[in-house]
């Protein structure tokens, strides 16, 4: 167990490239999850029973199976059906879909959380559907959602190493490859942990800041 700083400097550029890919994957996955989640949440509120049931089933199905299995499916099984996704695309879709089902529940809880009286009051004031959503419901629904969404963002960030299973050269995969080449695991794996910790801590403080600001407006 002898820590070598010269080895650290040598592998740092490679690992930073991995950090870049990891951050890209997280941000891309987060945007997808936010959009997919919203779509699923709205579909689940659909007055049409069939749509509502199907959506519920899809959500439960995806939540009930491991992300790793979903990634393997997207990457190795879909080509048999003629759909060949690039590793990063498959990874983003996997992350977006998986976490989309979680954010959908957050949206649902946030919207359900607005008291019925608010809907009734909006109706009584003769507001249009659009006005009701943008001026009454969403401003009250969004601030309580932020902490939960932020937690999923951080959780997703920490799950990006799974993408290494489908050959995405993110941080974990880069670290494993430099470790494999140099027969040294101590420095690469320690640095991976440190990078994840630093980025998590920074994101957490940024997100807490956002929460506080939104809280003040709300």
């Amino acid at each position: 167990m002898d820590w070598s700083w010269s080895f650290v400097w040598e592998i740092l550029p490679t690992l930073l490239e991995g950090v870049r890919v990891t951050i890209l994957a997280t941000l891309g996955g987060a945007v997808l999850a936010a959009v997919i989640g919203l779509a699923l949440a709205l579909l689940r509120r659909s007055p049409n029973k069939a749509v509502m049931r199907t959506t519920s089933f899809v959500i439960e199905f995806i939540r009930g199976t491991p992300l790793l299995v979903q990634l393997y499916f997207l990457f190795y099984v879909l080509p048999d059906a003629g759909i060949t996704l690039g590793p990063m695309t498959a990874g983003l879709i996997g992350l977006g879909l998986h976490y989309g089902t979680y954010t959908a529940e957050v949206y649902r809880a946030g919207i359900d959380n607005v008291p019925t009286g608010q809907w009734e009051a909006a109706k009584a004031c003769n507001l249009t559907g659009r006005q009701t959503w943008t001026q009454i419901i969403l401003p009250q629904a969004i601030p309580p959602m932020v902490p939960a969404l932020a937690n999923y963002l951080i959780a997703m960030f920490k799950e990006t190493p799974l993408l290494s299973a489908i050959t995405v050269l993110e941080l974990m995969n880069q670290a494993r490859s430099v470790a494999n080449f140099n027969y040294r695991y101590l420095e690469p794996m320690t640095l991976v942990g440190v990078f994840f910790l630093i980025i998590s801590l920074i994101s957490v403080s940024l997100l807490r800041l956002l929460e506080r600001r939104l809280g003040r407006i709300g």
Binding site: Y76, P79, T84, P87, A165, T167, L169, N173, S177
Partner: peptide, 21 residues
């Protein structure tokens, strides 16, 4: 580096070749 794909095992290697990856 980005054109050297690390393949987990022989079977995946064949599959990835067949799929054009």
């Amino acid at each position: 580096r980005d054109r050297v794909i690390v393949v987990p095992d022989g079977q995946s290697g064949v599959k990835m070749l067949q799929d054009g990856r």
